[in-house]
Amino acid sequence: MTASDLQRWSRDVAEDPGSPSFVPLARAYRRQGRRDAALSVVLRGLERNPEHVDAHALLALLHVDAGDRERAGDEWEMILRLDPRNFDARRGLGFLALERGDLANASTHLNAAAESRSGDPTVTQALEVLARRKKGGQGGAAPAAVAVAPLASPAPTPAVPAADDGRRDPTRLFDPLGREAPFLGALLLDGRGLVLAGSMTPAASGDGEALGALLSPAVDEAMRTVQLLGMGGWEGVMLECEGAALHLAPAGDGVLVLAARTGAPAGWVVRAASRARDLARGFLEETG
């Protein structure tokens, strides 16, 4: 997946939430750890494509990510109504049944999964656990942890800065703002859209460089609007989006991007942006 793929899928979905791009877009968001965005995209897509098997499968995984096994099970059941031999649904339901101790159902689903796709190591492992349990043996002590884990991709993590060894870590520039609940992160971008400092939490955006590139047309347009309307110098633009509140403001020859939770008070966003700008100014002065 490239930034241009993401941009194309996003554009498709913005124009038509039921566009075929909604599944790869939601999948990409999940890989980036942006579960809320993935959930929003997949739910809106399913409103228009209620029988989209891959979308239901992805939604099930998003529920697994959130620890909501019951809803994940509902999605897999839905898939089986549409496609009775579906491997993912059979495997998921088999794992859940195993977790509940419902050995009969676990056997039905896992064996069906093995028939659909022989040699899958996670199914083989689950069937071994099931066999031991049926015999009343050990080894089934924590089958769910073993079984369900392969369903979810590795949890994406933010770019966690290295332990503080006395040297300044630019990714932690805006950490003082992180103590306040609405704060999701901030990035200082240079004039070319490259990240100089700061970071975003996965809930906001996992990829700061891509974010800088994607937001730059909006920044250019804001500057042009101010100029053409004769409004004086550009000081910033605040966006209230479905997934976050964003504030973009000039900083040096670049831009400062601040993200906050949806519904964060507008005054707080403006004030936090001002504090972030102070931190950015200090950073730029120090680093020349």
Binding site: Y29, A37, S205, M231, E235, L239, E240, C241, E242
Partner: peptide
């Protein structure tokens, strides 16, 4: 906003 994964924009405020 949509390309960055923040969803649709509900409103914007340009400050100058």
């Amino acid at each position: 906003s949509t390309a960055s994964g923040f969803g649709r924009v509900r409103s914007l405020q340009l400050e100058s």
